[in-house]
């Protein structure tokens, strides 16, 4: 893999609260120059990112119900539609993790059905954040099953919201998800991926996207 190919795996991410518009504009321009797959930013910054990325191959990605996922399906649907209207081309939705853990699969099915339709009606890619580090293996498998049943395009490991999570995403998390989704379903590894070595391990384990705030370091670390 060369640098250009590796860059295509990366969702260059800044989900820090309070980033000003001008900083996000610069962030997006850098991301486009580096040829990253997308820029992943908070919903309140989608318009700014869409303007900065216009005419480039780098997509506007945002997050829904971030980072806690504790919203009703109806609210996630509204937030998704608003993000798409504002220019989002990819949606990373946080699953209702508490509902999944409590066995309340109707809630997860409902939110996925609604958000999946809202995205796919507009040709937008849906990634489902399942927050692997809070789940048992059985719960991870169940989340994959619900994602597949509702047409999720990419299963994403983690919000990467460190203050809430016990650990970073592991290679084992990625392998487990890969074993329980269709070959054509995407897999985004995110949460504590900082180096080229981390990223390549995740790709080897089956990741098709890498969420990272240090995309440039990851790409620059690759030997030519």
């Amino acid at each position: 893999m060369n640098k250009k190919e590796l860059a295509k795996y990366i969702d260059q991410t800044d989900l820090t609260p309070g980033e000003p518009y001008d900083k996000i504009t610069e962030f997006c321009k850098d991301a486009a120059e580096n040829g990253f797959a997308s820029v992943c930013i908070l919903p309140t910054l989608v318009k700014t990112a869409a303007a900065a990325l216009k005419g480039t191959d780098t997509k506007v990605c945002t997050v829904v119900s971030f980072p806690l996922g504790m919203d009703y399906p109806e609210i996630k649907e509204i937030e998704t539609k608003e993000a798409i209207e504002n220019g989002a081309e990819e949606i990373d939705m946080v699953m209702n993790v508490g509902a999944l853990k409590g066995g309340d699969y109707d809630i997860v099915n409902d939110e996925l059905a609604r958000v999946s339709k809202a995205c796919h009606d507009k040709g937008v890619l849906l990634k489902l954040i399942i927050e692997t580090t809070l789940l048992t293996d059985e719960q991870i498998v169940k989340a994959c099953e619900l994602a597949e049943a509702n047409g999720v395009d990419i299963v994403k490991t983690s919000t990467g919201f460190k203050k809430m999570l016990p650990r970073s995403t592991s290679v084992e998390d990625v392998q487990l998800i890969r074993a329980h989704i269709k070959p054509e379903t995407g897999l985004k590894a995110a949460g504590g991926i900082r180096t080229t070595e981390d990223a390549l391990k995740m790709i080897e384990a089956g990741a098709t996207r890498i969420g990272a705030s240090s995309g440039k370091d990851i790409v620059d670390g690759l030997a030519e």
Partner: peptide, 18 residues
């Protein structure tokens, strides 16, 4: 719009009404 203040206007209103 918790904890990051990142929900957009309509989402925030819908969340509040609910």
């Amino acid at each position: 719009s918790y904890p990051l203040g990142s929900y957009t206007h309509e989402a925030k209103l819908a969340q509040l009404k609910q």
